[in-house]
Each structure stands twice: as C-alpha cells, then as structure tokens.
Nucleic acid binder design. Structure first.
Lengths: 351, 351
DNA sequence: CTGAAAGCGCTTACAG
DNA sequence: CTGAAAGCGCTTACAG
C-alpha cells in the first residue's frame, strides 16, 4: 500500500525477488503470472517475497517477449480543420459529452482486464500516418475508432493491416471491419410514433449533415415513419448538428411550413438552438409544436421545456466495442462482428 | 504510406535493416535516433533501407533500455461513488466538457513531441493502488492529475514517489508538487466589478461545495470584492455545482434576500438551473437581477439569456501542465513550479 | 565515425 | 514441478 522503498532506488526485478525467495526467476515469473503449475508451498514463499520487495513487473520487458502491451488505442478521428490559425485547439470532439460516455464505457470493461487506454487524435494526414506507424510498431494491441469524418481512410487502413479494431459506427463506405452502432431508423421511428401518438399530423424534421451516415439513416427513418403513418409530404431542412444551426434551420422550417405541429430534430444540441426561436415566434412547446430530439445529451436537460429525446445506450455500446476488440485480440479470426443496439425514447416535457 | 508487407509477416527489426544497408545495428540505431555522428553517405544508405523495409522501431525494446516510454498518464481522480449499483458507469467527469478541453490542451503539446497520453481513472482505493503500481512499474514517464476529490491522497503519493507530476489545481492540503491553476479570486473580482459597474449594489453569491479549494477561493474572492466595494453584508448560499443544485440555491437566496439585484453563481451549470427559477419568480434577467457565472462552459450558451461568465483559459492551462511534466521528465529537479493563469470575463446577455 | 558486445527485465520451450 | 538458458529488439559505453 505504502511506498516503503527509498524513492530513487533502482526498481526491483524478478532476479531480486528470486534471490529473496530462494528460487529461480522462472518460478517467480510463473507465480506472478498465475500459472497453476507451481508447488503451493513455493508459491507462498514467492508471494511473500513479492510483497516484501514490493515487486512490480517491468512491462516493457514483458511486452518485448509476449508481444502484447495490454493497452488499446481509442482513436478520435476528425476531418481536417480549415481555419487552423483561428482555432489553434485540437480535438473539438473531446468536449462533446458523447465522447465522455464512450470513454466511460470503454474504461469500464478495459479496467478489470488490466488493459489501459491510450487516447489518440487523428485530424490530418500527418497524424494519421503517425498513427499507423504507431500501430504497426505494436504499441497497442488493438484500436477503437470513433470517427466523425465521413471520408475517413482509417477504417480501410485498419481493415487492411488486420489490426484488431472496432468502429464506433457503421463505416461510411462498406469495408470489412467490426463495428457497433445504434439502430438509427428505429430511434426516429420511436420519435415519430410518439408525435403521432400525441395527435400530431404535420411533422417535419431537421436532419444532420447529410454526408454523415448517421444523418442519412435518421432522415431515412423519418421518411419511412412519415410514410407509414400516411402523414403526407415529408418536410426536411438540413442542419449541421450545432446550436446555431438548429436556430437557422427551425426558422427555415417555419417559413416552409408555418402550420407544423411537430418536429423531429436530429440532435439535442440543434433542438437547444431551435426552442428559443420557436418561443419567440409565439409558439408554445409542446402545445403548439411538439419537439423530439436525439441523443439524450446534456443539452436535452438544458432545454426549457426539457427535451423528449431518443436515447442511445452509448456506454453499453462503448463497452461492447471494448469487448469486441478484446475478443479479436484473444482470438484473431475472420469474423467481423457488427452489433446493433436498440435506442429508446426518453419522454420529458417537449413532446 | 501504404502497407506493402504481407500482413502477418514478422515485424522488421533493426537487424534486418542493418543487413539491407550493409552496416551494423548500432549505426542504424544512431540514424533512426537522429544522432549526428554518422557519415552523411552512410546515413543516406540507412535511410533508404529504413524506407525500403518500412521499418518501425519496437517501442518495448526501446523502453526496456532507455527506461522511457514516451507516454504520460492523464489521471482523473474522483471521490468514490456511493450508489454503485444504481449507477454502474464510471468516470462521470469524462462527460464534463471541461475535461475535454484539458485533453485537447494536453494533446496539443504532447503530440509534437511524439508523446502519447494514457487515460486513467482513479475512483476508489483499489484503482488508486493499481495506479500506483502502474506508475512505479514505469509504464509512463509522468502524470497529469485532474482531481475532483478534496481528500485525494494521490497528490501526496505522487509527491512522495518523486514521479514527474503536475496537478490541475492547487492541492487541497499543501504538499510539494507542481500545479497549474487559475486565479480564482481575480475571476470573481472581475464578475463583481462588472455587476457593480452596471449599477448593482445588492449582490449575492451561490458558492460551490465548500470542501473544494476552488469553491473556497471563489467565495473568498466574493467576500473581498463585496468588502472592497462597500456593498454591505455578503449573502451566501452553498451550492453543489449541479443544475438542480443551482435551482435549489437560487430559491433559498430569493427567500433570504428578495431584494437582490445581482448574483455571482460559481458555476455556469448552477446558473443554468437558476435562470428558469428566476424567470418563474417574475424577475427578468438582467433587468431585475443580473447574473454572472463561472467557467464559460457550454451551459453558458444554453442559458436563456446567454450567460455573462468568467472564463478560465483551460486549454492553455492544460498545455502548460503538459509542458511542466515534460520539463520535469527532461530535467528532474527539486523545483516544484506553480503557474497561475488569469481569468477573463466574457460579457453576454445575463449581466 | 563505426562495430562488436553487453545488457535492459522478462517469458518460455526444453531438460530433468 | 523446477531451473538453466536462450532470446525478445533495442541502446550505449567501449575500443578502434
């Protein structure tokens, strides 16, 4: 528990423990690694020596021979930023609570396995190249890729190199790689069904950027649901997943279709931008227009009224990603599993 | 750029490159590590061989001899959760955008140095013990500690073990360790000065949890500023840095001092909870009560009206933390630097 | 400037 | 079940 050794002493090695226990290094190694083939009495002696010396194995030495590092990379991949000079800070995605939930879910399963997570950012070709070198050099045992970039070459590269890898969503272009995703269409169906259930008939949508697969899926889900309920012409405005973008989009929507009584907004953050516009236009939420968002992120609670929204089980999905890499590491196989989770609807005040 | 090698081939080693270049391993090593003492012609030959073989050094082998891992740990330390069963997910702090900004700032300076960041969570004594073992085993070269835990033993442990380390804020109990912080009092002074500047005289505060040093400092700053302006009795309610807590606190404040015309709220999130209460009580913001928050986090923009708030240069502070660990790693010294940043006031609509 | 050799701390066949 | 020994891939005095 405490650190008894003089701080600047050389680290204790297997050799040292072996001497204390009066056995060979091999035996100490076996005990430390929990191999069963050790005499109980010897095992006890060794364990005492380990405790007495405060021994901790050197992981570099271990990695060198086992070719395992007990760590996986969580790679965040973003499109290249245009105005680097104006915005010197990297990794916009890091400040997204969604990212935090992914980290949480991943760490949750990694930790009990003694696996560590190294966080990497790939946001231009230089960093992507550096990343590949890093992976090929075997610095991590596998990778989980969270990409916000529709034209990301990483999924294909990962797939080519056969490094154990899992994507946080369906790859934009089909490529043989494991991934975890949520059933986007199902989520939107939930939203539209709910709106219809509370009597809405004139239901529009604000989509996400349509170069992102998730946005495409959500829009498709909207169209399907509207058709299924015989709701007439779909009304669609494309948004950009930002708060300001939500405000702009809802204004356009009100111009196009002033008689709306329901809207599905493809992200909570856009809904957060949209609500004040609605309120200033004299429309009450949910009485005049019912609003459903997507994500169940913190903006949903910041909304006034609080947002009814589609929840993805992000932590569960992240945990599953971790399990999938771990499995690939343990037993490399040709199988590229995909796991699709079901979303749920969180009903609050806005619809 | 591309991966020409058959995927399952053995990795290329120094040995291999040396053979191709017709030199010794030592020479290849020197070239790869940029040692200047190599004949230009030989260097060229080696560089070609490296490129031709697609050589990447094995980092475990390198670490084993250099005793450097080229990685640092970003440790998030939280108090133990009470209702583990109800809340199976770990690392609440990860979803805080503040954390994302720290990651961003740290990665920004680590990356050009080829250093990696491993993310670790310490949230109970088991994980703290595991962490210590990990550090002593030399798995990382240094650590940056972000602690939300007032009674965290980690700063002291880190200080005892002499591992290069930097804290993200002043340690709760004084202990000799480097840290970076923002001048909390100065920030509050900015807020109160602004409120006075727009004519407010009856200014209260909602503090953070008073077992946290940052909360104590902010409260002290409030008291100082109120005294400096001769504003009469301080009016204080303790909050808990949550949205709901903000709502509860503002209600109490209105009971205690119904004639308030200004309030400094020690976090934006609490302000987000407070504003709707104010509005429902019939008070307009900023006309009747001017509100200033702290953090300039996303809730500040989610507020309606948008929040005037104190901004900490979080990314800059995080970058500085990274520089400080790096410096400690490069030249271990007794000096335990502390760097204090100046906050600024972001004026929006609420005051 | 270059190379032969030792050594970093571990794991793992291989004998016994 | 246990130990002696080889070997993982690199860096770095040390000679030359």
């Amino acid at each position: 528990m405490t650190t008894d050794l003089p701080p600047s002493t050389r680290p204790v090695t297997l050799e040292h423990v072996a001497k204390v226990a009066g056995v060979s290094r091999a035996t100490v190694s076996r005990v430390v690694n929990g191999k069963s083939t050790v005499d109980p009495e010897l095992r006890r002696v060794v364990e005492e020596a380990v405790a007495a010396t405060n021994y901790v194995p050197n992981s570099a030495a271990r990695s060198l021979v086992t070719r395992r590092t007990n760590s996986i990379a969580l790679v965040v991949s973003e499109a290249e930023r245009r105005h680097q000079a104006l915005d010197p800070f990297v990794g916009r995605m890091f400040t997204d609570p969604h990212f935090g939930r992914v980290v949480s879910g991943v760490i949750q399963v990694l930790r009990p396995q003694g696996m560590q997570m190294v966080l990497m950012l790939a946001d231009d070709s230089a960093s992507r190249g550096q990343l590949l070198g890093y992976l090929r050099q075997g610095h991590v045992d596998g990778v989980i890729l969270v990409s916000s970039n529709a034209t990301d070459p990483l999924p294909q590269w990962l797939s080519d190199t056969r490094i154990p890898a899992v994507l946080a969503s369906r790859p934009a272009s089909s490529c043989p790689i494991a991934y975890v995703d949520v059933d986007q269409r199902e989520g939107v169906r939930l939203a539209v069904d709910h709106l219809v259930g509370i009597g809405r008939r004139r239901i529009a949508t604000i989509s996400g950027p349509l170069d992102m697969p998730a946005s495409q899926e959500r829009l498709a889900g909207y169209r399907e649901a509207v058709a299924a309920h015989g709701l007439g012409e779909p009304v669609v405005v494309e948004g950009d997943f930002t708060q300001d973008g939500g405000a702009v989009a809802i204004r356009r929507l009100l111009e196009i279709a002033p008689d709306l009584d329901g809207v599905f907004i493809a992200s909570d953050l856009m809904a957060l931008g949209a609500l004040p516009v609605l309120s200033r236009s004299g429309r009450r939420v949910p009485e005049d227009i019912a609003v459903v968002g997507f994500d169940d992120s913190s903006p949903a609670l910041a909304c006034d009224p609080q947002l009814t929204t589609v929840r993805q089980p992000v932590e569960d999905m992240a945990a599953e990603m971790a399990r999938l890499v771990l499995r690939q590491i343990a037993e490399p196989s040709k199988a590229m599993p995909m796991v699709v989770f079901r979303p749920s609807l969180v009903v609050r005040q806005s619809a």
